[in-house]
Design a protein around this nucleic acid. Structure first.
Lengths: 338, 338
DNA sequence: TTGAAAGCGCTAACAT
DNA sequence: ATGTTAGCGCTTTCAA
């Protein structure tokens, strides 16, 4: 394994000069730099990140904690983070908590806390008080993407507002019998996301003087398959809603599949609206409130990088915009009836 | 930042003993160990992975190179890898090549090759000769998951065989007009996967004396949305096939969506078979040849771990099994016609 | 512009 | 069972 000393020996300069030359620092003559670069290439020298990390105190790695990597939202944020990080020479260390969070304790103690990363970005997680303390005491810049978390700043949409807007869109179309397909409050995940969305729905209904019927407010996981089953329960009854607001596009698509199976036409007999603008929303002609998780991830990453390079930490959370995209899955009650 | 020296001082023992105690090595009395553990906890001591990595020569990190994290196959493999690694104290460093592979060069030079990882698992990648040399010269154990790659062992299904089996299933049902929705040969990715699957299809057709019509062999990306468009092209014609073999379930679902849009009933007028057993295959009642990417990832990870712990490197590739899962998207031509 | 040398925080012989 | 000490490979003063 060729090290910096080998390059130095071959080039006939000191290790210090090699180090400077290779990192593009000033005060190295162009000639020296060139010959050092060439020798390094020829010898196949690659610096050890452990050694430089130990010397500088920087790991050049970002810890990203994700509940899983099967939902579109998480993977999109992840790609946004990685894309922002890579050009800066930062690596992404993925901490997957696992479906049931089995690995959570392990992730925290053995890994994140091993000074392996310079900063931590967490996706839709809720932290325990202890976990927050540990993060804080290690001095890691930390930010959460997707959903407000107490004690930590976050980047995300206005969960309440977006849900309210979605519901109001249906109300604006004349619907009065509106159901809500809500996300599950998973253990360890940020419960406030499904909660705030449900609350936004309820507020919109209430503000319009509409009845929130318990049997029309069902809960499923945030995925297509589970949402489909939940929707089957909601829709396969005598009195069903004429419109459904789903807490995510994946859930909305699950609802559309359920409707199709039950012979309920969308939007003829049922309007469906979601949140996200998932790639499949277009294929399914789904009306939705679009958000951009890739951009949220990129923003989170650049915030962390800024702070690592000495910028003052801005403790404020960032609320990103959403936009209504009207497609064919919603229609006015009048038109549907007619 | 409290270090091992602080713990040693507080406990009144040497750094070596602290190191031993905390890593669970033998030759430390239970009393000492207990008091050391306690002091470490109290002081909030966390070891520096850089320092220990530098001292041991082990990074306790696995590099995982992925084309992207938006396809089910990749994320499933990733979860399998991570699940296997985590209990062993290994972290997963994610190298996302980016949609168009923009970051490929950067990943190779700046990151993987920085001795940041102990081994490398690559997903469905093709390596250039130079890249292989670099990996080899650094002495990283390496394995590819998903698709044969020249010069490296791999873990994956028999691409040719599984495609042939899928096609033969359709033939066995009496179909003669069988189309193939093939995967795209993306730059930098393992082209042999789509190629071998196409070849398996062609062989099955040929062996049965059936005609492979060029206009029935279309190519799309491995995703639902693109596959849907490709399928629209294939199916929206006068003479269309009565069955389609898609190179993945995501593509098969794209085909089913396209069929639905064109008013072609599945399986009444069109049988569809895929490969994968994607979670949505069940929802869409899709016949498929199941594979288990999670297990493939776990296997890859444990192979790497074994070799890192001194086991002899087994250079042989591993072919994993697939299983036909018959669902409602395929039916015999006779029944469909009748 | 370049070099010498002292760490960074830990592990692993080797002693005791 | 525990302590001493010499690195691991780099960066970074401080000198020259």
């Amino acid at each position: 394994m060729t090290g910096i000393a080998d390059v130095a020996r071959v080039t006939g300069v000191s290790m210090a000069t090699v180090s400077r030359a290779l990192r593009g620092l000033p005060n190295v003559s162009e000639d020296t730099r060139r010959s050092i670069r060439e020798a390094a290439d020829r010898l196949g020298y690659v610096p050890s990140s452990n050694a430089s990390g130990l010397a500088t105190g920087r790991t050049m790695a970002m810890g990203v904690v994700v509940p899983n990597v099967s939902r579109w939202f998480y993977t999109s944020v992840l790609e946004g983070i990685d894309a922002e990080l890579r050009p800066m020479g930062y690596d992404t260390i993925l901490f997957n908590l696992g479906v049931r969070g089995e690995d959570r304790e392990r992730v925290f103690h053995r890994s994140i806390l091993r000074k392996r990363v310079d900063a931590v970005i967490a996706l839709c997680l809720d932290f325990t008080a202890t976990e927050r303390e540990q993060l804080a005491s290690l001095g890691y810049p930390t930010v959460v993407v997707g959903g407000p978390v107490r004690g930590l700043r976050h980047i995300g949409v206005d969960e309440f507002g977006v849900a309210r807007a979605a519901t109001e869109h249906l109300i604006g179309l004349g619907h009065v019998a509106i159901g809500h397909l809500g996300g599950e409050e998973e253990r360890g995940l940020n419960k406030r996301v499904p909660q705030r969305r449900r609350a936004g729905y309820a507020r919109a209904m209430q503000a319009a003087g509409l009845e929130v019927r318990p049997e029309w407010t069902v809960t499923g996981a945030f995925e297509i398959t589970d949402a489909r089953e939940a929707a089957l329960r909601m829709l396969d009854v005598e009195q069903r809603p004429t419109a459904v607001f789903a807490a995510s596009d994946e859930m909305a698509i699950g609802a559309m599949l359920a409707a199709r199976e039950l012979g309920i036409s969308v939007p003829g007999e049922l309007s469906v609206i979601g949140i996200d603008n998932h790639p499949l929303a277009d294929v399914f002609d789904l009306t939705t409130l679009a958000q951009d998780p890739y951009a949220q991830g990129a923003l989170a990453a650049s915030m962390m990088l800024d702070e690592l390079s000495g910028a003052p930490a801005r403790s404020r959370s960032v609320t990103v915009r959403t936009a209504l995209i009207e497609r064919g899955s919603t229609t006015s009650l009048a038109r549907a009836a007619g």
